[in-house]
Simulated assay, not measured.
Amino acid sequence: MDTSTHIVMGVGLAGLATLDPHVASSPYMQSAVLATTLVASNAPDFDTVLKLRNNAVYIRHHRGITHSLPAMMLWPFVVSGGMLLFFQNAYWPTLLLWAAISVFLHVFVDIFNAYGTQALRPASNRWIALGVINIFDPIIFGSHAAGILLWLAGVPPGPTYIVIYVGLILYYIWRIGQKKQVVKHARSYYPTASHIFVSPTLRWNKWHLVIRTPEMLHVAQSKDKVITFFESYTFDPIPNDPVMQAAKSDKNLSAFLSFSPTYRWEMEATDTDGYEVRFVDLRYRSNGYYPFVAIVKMDQELNIVTSYTGWVYSEETLRKKLKVIT
């Protein structure tokens, strides 16, 4: 989920913690728990600092080791221990408990969007991305925000957030059922499809689709239970030739391939007697454009001249970024 959602979820968990009489009866403990849940709810995303290095490192590692099984066990101790520096009289087991709940909930909700996490590392490096909830969901954010407003208005937060979380559990179950219906509908068009990639949007009734058959990749949209097809591409495996192998050695393209499960690629000779290799993630389509890309430019001797991976929303912007990197 996005940062704003993790923040309001941190507040919500602090409200839920007031069901503990020792927390509810102590403003000091309420403050300590609130600080703990706010930090712990965002701790797995501290790897965002990798963006300061470059996009390749960020894409390869974001939601990786910081969302892994060892990290989920380590973060609660780091956060709750750090909080004792500011709340020296706080009851540490309580802080540890709510830090653990906050970290677990962060990773758990992240697996439901299309980006996913490597939550099973080190047992498996596979990305778990269920494609059920958009990275920002108005219902999830809005329900938590409503709970905060009620809390500020004097309504007891514990019972309020019990109702909110029961409602959100039902909401998740409903969304899972909706996705299953979308997949079933798409498979009725292509029974031989090996994979159907589903990306949720801000709208409940709208889903992005990429349908992979043995021969083709079909980009489509499901809206109001009607599937509209946009583009289709021949499903060509990545060739094992010198140009492509040289491009794959680039850190930006390597990061892209470690993350993207469905894409199309292009390879062409440029006007300067070099080569350009481009990969486009088909899961993300915006106004007819695919913004998540990786591009590698090489000279005639297959030396990498410049490369880029990340989100760009126009060809002009992409060319500018390549020039800056050069």
Rank of each mutant, 00 (worst) to 15 (best):
Q30E: 12
Q178M: 10
I111A: 15
I227M: 07
M72P: 03
W265R: 08
A145W: 07
T309W: 00
L209E: 12
A32W: 15
F230M: 08
A32K: 14
K323E: 14
P237H: 00
Q221A: 09
S143Y: 06
P242Y: 06
T37N: 13
T66M: 10
Y172C: 01
H67M: 05
L16H: 09
A119W: 03
T234G: 00
F235V: 10
T326K: 15
P44K: 11
Q221E: 14
V183G: 10
K51Y: 01
E231Y: 12
S199T: 11
T326A: 13
D281I: 05
R121S: 03
H185Y: 04
G158E: 13
S249H: 14
I173L: 10
I111D: 13
T317V: 14
A145Y: 06
L149D: 02
A294V: 03
P27G: 15
I211T: 01
T201Q: 10
Y308S: 00
G142C: 04
A99H: 13
I295W: 00
A119M: 12
I173F: 10
G154N: 13
A17F: 09
P237E: 05
L202Y: 03
L52Q: 01
V324S: 12
T309M: 01
A114T: 04
V109M: 15
Y91F: 15
P27A: 14
T192M: 04
V305N: 03
L74D: 11
P122C: 02
G288W: 13
L95I: 08
M9E: 08
G274D: 00
S26M: 14
T213A: 05
P200C: 11
S80N: 09
F256I: 10
S188E: 13
T317W: 14
R319H: 11
L69D: 04
W98H: 09
W127K: 15
T160I: 14
Y289E: 06
T272W: 06
K251L: 06
V103R: 02
F104K: 11
A35K: 08
D250G: 01
F256Q: 07
W75L: 05
H185V: 02
M73K: 06
H185E: 02
W98D: 07
K248P: 04
W204L: 08
L19M: 05
G116V: 08
P159Y: 07
I139E: 01
V11M: 02
S143M: 13
A17R: 07
W265E: 02
H6I: 07
Y172L: 12
L322K: 01
K321E: 15
V11L: 07
L85R: 08
V79H: 11
L168K: 07
M298N: 04
N113Q: 04
R203D: 06
T160E: 14
S258G: 15
D299T: 01
I173E: 02
